[in-house]
Design a protein around this nucleic acid. Structure first.
Length: 894
RNA sequence: GAGGGGGUGCCGGAGCGGUCAAACGGGACAGGUUUAGGCCCUGUUGGCUUAGUGCCUACGCGUGUUCAAAUCACGUCCCCCUCACCA
């Protein structure tokens, strides 16, 4: 156990007692809502959690110290399968296990010194929480956004239970290993597709989100514009619409394909010679689709089903197939196939010898179906189609064909989404009960609002067979709220993503028993300013949460369009190049690290080792390094330093300057969430303070330096910082102290401190200590490159407008240079334009500039008390003049 | 296949037109402390050189833009991630 263990315990205790992290709405202060994705309470923190919380807490602390009213809460996504499994194993209730796990989890989080407002904790298994899940469900139902539909589930006949996808291993039940069947069941859906358009178009509002997440959501929603075309079945005359984005190829259709699981298929082959074969094919493909998607499904497989369809524009009869490559979920599950112009259709047609008809011709040559090796998918001119369209480029003709079809009543323009409605039914116990009742007379009846919540029963049997809720008569039996006759309750529970779709709103008012939350409170806190979590939620959770926010807004309850302003997706923690996982045996337990070093060490390492969004390679040695660094920081305040000298020496001025520039840089890095760079900066600063400490010091200066270090490090290593703060004799908690502000003038002063320091290009701040040497300089040479060009010309031009005196301009430039010498963050010469080619030729005549410079040479020499050498730009790459270039003079001291 | 992100010194990892032989950490080596080791401290860590210094070679590979490229553009090779037979 390290020397920090006691310190950490002490401050955790004090934070708890003082309640400094509790917040409430305060309209005089700017709010900041910092949120981490609430965890599933597995009972044990892993490295991913540690990383997530290290990032979030540091940022929350930083914002708090900057005067924001920071909402930083924590909660638990506590419904879910593991609890149910534990219940079966231990013959207990899932609640017991879950409660225990939450307690464990929270204890570990407290050990990390995270500055949560624990009073705002939210847990989805809490009745007062899930009643509002049910309430939202009722609202969805009311608005027609919750509905029932048949959907397939994985069924284990032996266990008599529904399996989640993760419980299906190699298409077998994970418990009994019997083959899993696919069954259709009436289940509940949320109509997220009703919001597809807005969910898509609002992505562009999410400026603070990573591009890749936005892209994933865009692809997930998958909007495509196309045409719905009414094909007819030959035998029955029934109209079967199909969706296509390539209506321009309509005349090239030579066959049609159904998704194998399309209900129409069995209907069509019933009683025909094809029935048996088709059935066998479907059985095989459906399983494949479910469980062996990664297998050789690339091979196109299909079968003719003995039926024909009629092309509405040509009247052609084309054969209908079923094939593995057509999906029921997308479009209408029935497609028109144009082998000449679609690669998949082409491969299929070749394999099953279906004719190929070319309807788009390239400009360069003629296509012959028999000689084609691949489909022609590029653009060209329409041929072999309706006279009205032949000869026209195919892309241009699409809207015309759409109009034409519409007029004839054969089809219409439509928009299609990949996004599917959200299946929320789960046939399990440990979830939010869906609040509806089935009555023989009244049908589906919502549970009246005042009867919420529909509670999960305390008494339940967990045998592993079926849904314990369904076999619980006490739960199931009820009376119809409308006609009062005996009825039965819905026994499906909701997907846990439902619970997590609005928890961030509940944090704003977690104790409200009358409403889901108070509107004013939500209005104060929302939206979440910074959301932090894993990339694995890029689509599901983050999309559902957006959907919920929009729905609640439309209900007049929530107050924002989008819930999360800034999103940070942290990278994975890996070890030996692989993801940490139990099966690989490369798991490092954060608990051990905390035990061995300290929570602060673990946090600092997590932040220092990699940028938040990058992968973080676990490295034991690196942890050592972080630990050593913190010890060094801490030992700065342990000894009681003696100091003299009231007058500030150069040494004092140097460390003060270093301090202020460090404040500036650390602040900037944290703002950008570049924690590793901020910590790196602190490491350098710490070394500088150590150096300063040697020899004579100014006690006041030293204390200020130490206090500043404590402040700057406090977001990352809060316990240590508090301890330092106390040792320095400061009052109150550092956690709520003011973040220091960089005093730029102090930085300048240091530069000025050596008026004689003129800048040697390679000098860095430490070398300033060698100023004495420079003082004795005999000769100062100023080397100026004369060929002013590009962006520098522009800068010159701007300046020339106010003054024609080059020496004044150069003086300004020198001043900037000097400022840089004081480690000013700003770059000396801003690059005005990126693209030099955009500069008008006549901006400034270069020759004139050179002359101007020559003319002013004498003045400059006097001005700077230096010898002036003027070079051509090319010359500036050589020898001593290497560091002189247009825009930046070099100064040599001899 | 589509989309995204990357290739930097012994390693991890910053930098993203000129203060770059490249931050910071780790490792290695040398020295100090120590009976010794550990901890800790100091220094070195591409090559050749100087009294200070300077030169050459280097940021996957190639070409280009520029007075100037690790940084920008184009091409090329390799790696990672996400979605994936989307009609």
């Amino acid at each position: 156990m390290s020397e920090f263990a006691e310190i950490e315990k002490k401050w955790q205790q004090r934070w708890k007692e003082s309640g400094i992290f509790r917040v409430k709405e305060d309209h005089d202060k700017k709010k900041y809502y910092c949120l981490e994705m609430y965890p599933y309470p597995s009972g044990k923190l892993h490295m991913g959690h540690l990383r997530n919380y290290s990032i979030g807490d540091s940022f929350a602390r930083y914002k708090r110290m900057n005067g924001f009213n920071v909402l930083y809460p924590m909660g638990y996504d506590s419904f879910g399968l593991p609890a149910e499994n534990a219940a079966i194993k231990n013959q207990s209730h899932p609640e017991d296990w879950t409660t225990k796990m939450i307690a464990q989890m929270r204890e570990q989080q407290e050990q990390l010194g995270l500055s949560y407002d624990w009073d705002r904790m939210v847990s989805s298994i809490d009745e007062e929480y899930y009643r509002w899940d049910q309430w939202i469900f009722l609202k969805m139902l009311e608005k027609g956004l919750a509905y029932r539909k048949e959907a397939p589930i994985n069924w284990c006949e032996k266990c008599h239970t529904v399996l989640a996808n993760e419980q299906v291993i190699n298409s077998s039940c994970w418990r009994c290993e019997s083959k899993v069947q696919v069954k259709n069941l009436e289940q509940w859906f949320f109509k997220i597709t009703a919001y597809a358009e807005e969910l898509l178009s609002d992505i562009k509002k999410l400026e603070g989100w990573p591009e890749r997440v936005k892209l994933m959501q865009e692809n997930w929603i998958g909007r495509s514009e196309g045409t719905l075309i009414n094909f007819k079945l030959k035998r029955t005359g029934e109209i079967m619409p199909i969706f296509t984005t390539r209506v321009d190829t309509l005349w090239g259709v030579t066959f049609m394909v159904f998704a194998p699981e399309h209900p129409k298929v069995m209907e069509l082959v019933k009683g025909t010679e094809y029935e048996e074969r088709v059935k066998r094919f479907i059985d095989r493909i459906v399983i494949q689709d479910k469980f062996q998607r990664t297998d050789d499904t690339k091979e196109k497989e299909g079968m003719f089903i003995g039926e024909y369809a009629i092309n509405p524009v040509t009247g052609d009869e084309v054969p209908i197939y079923i094939a593995n490559f057509v999906l029921l979920e997308y479009g209408t599950g029935f497609i028109m196939a144009v082998p000449a112009h679609d690669q998949r259709d082409f491969e299929f047609a070749k394999k099953y010898q279906v004719p190929i008809k070319v309807v788009i011709s390239p400009d360069t040559h003629e296509l012959h179906p028999a000689r084609m090796a691949v489909a022609f998918i590029e653009d060209g001119k329409i041929i072999n189609s309706d006279e009205a369209f032949n000869g026209v480029p195919n892309r241009e003709v699409i809207p015309e064909i759409q109009k034409w079809l519409e007029k004839k009543g054969l089809g219409k323009k439509t928009v299609q989404y990949k996004l599917r409605d959200w299946l929320i039914s789960r046939q399990r116990f440990w979830g939010t009960p869906i609040p509806v009742i089935y009555c023989d007379h009244c049908g589906i009846v919502p549970v009246p609002e005042k009867e919420l919540p529909v509670r999960l029963p305390r008494k339940a049997k967990f045998s592993g067979q079926g849904n314990p809720l369904a076999s619980n008569e006490e739960f199931v039996t009820c009376f119809c709220p409308v006609c009062k006759s005996p009825a039965r309750r819905e026994t499906d529970t909701m997907d846990t993503f439902v619970n997590s779709s609005w928890y961030f709103l509940r944090y704003t008012d977690n104790k409200n028993q009358k409403q889901i939350f108070d509107r004013d409170k939500a209005r104060y806190w929302m939206p979440v300013d910074q959301y932090i979590g894993g990339i694995e939620h890029a689509v599901l959770h983050l999309l559902y949460a957006r959907f919920y926010t929009k729905f609640l807004r439309d209900m007049g309850i929530a107050v924002v369009d989008e819930p999360f302003t800034n999103l940070l997706c942290q990278g994975m923690v890996i070890k030996d190049g692989k993801k940490m996982s139990k099966s690989l045996g490369n798991v490092v337990d954060p608990g051990e690290i905390i035990e061995k070093y300290s929570a602060d060490t673990a946090r600092v390492f997590m932040l220092f080792a990699a940028m938040p969004e990058k992968e973080l390679e676990w490295n034991d040695k690196g942890v050592e390094g972080s630990f050593r660094f913190l010890k060094r920081v801490y030992h700065l305040v342990e000894e009681n330093m003696e100091g003299h000298a009231k007058e500030l020496s150069n040494k004092d001025r140097f460390i003060i300057s270093k301090m202020h520039s460090t404040i500036g840089k650390v602040t900037m890095h944290i703002e950008k969430m570049h924690f590793s760079l901020a910590i790196g900066e602190l490491m350098q600063y710490t070394s500088a303070v150590y150096k300063y400490k040697e020899g004579t010091i100014n006690k006041e200066v030293y204390d200020e330096c130490a206090a500043t270090l404590a402040l700057l490090i406090s977001p990352f290593a809060p316990h240590l910082a508090e301890e330092m703060w106390e040792k320095l004799g400061k009052k109150g908690f550092i956690s709520i102290a003011h973040w220091p502000k960089a005093d730029l003038s102090k930085i300048d002063k240091k530069a000025e401190a050596g008026e004689e320091i003129v800048s040697s290009v390679t000098a860095d701040i430490i070398k300033v200590q060698e100023l004495a040497k420079i003082k004795q300089a005999k000769k100062i040479t100023l080397i100026i490159a004369a060929e002013w060009k590009y962006d520098f010309i522009r800068e010159l031009k701007d300046r020339m407008e106010s003054t024609r005196d080059l020496s004044v301009i150069l003086k300004e430039i020198m001043a900037t240079e000097l400022k840089r010498y004081g480690e000013e963050i700003v770059k000396a010469v801003p690059s005005f334009i990126k693209d030099p080619s955009k500069l008008p030729e006549e901006v400034l005549d270069q020759q004139t500039e050179s002359n101007l410079l020559q003319d002013n040479k004498e003045t400059l020499a006097q001005e700077f008390k230096a010898e002036i050498i003027i070079l051509k730009a090319e010359e500036s790459r050589e020898g001593k003049a290497k560091n002189a270039y247009p825009g930046k003079p070099a100064i040599l001291i001899e």
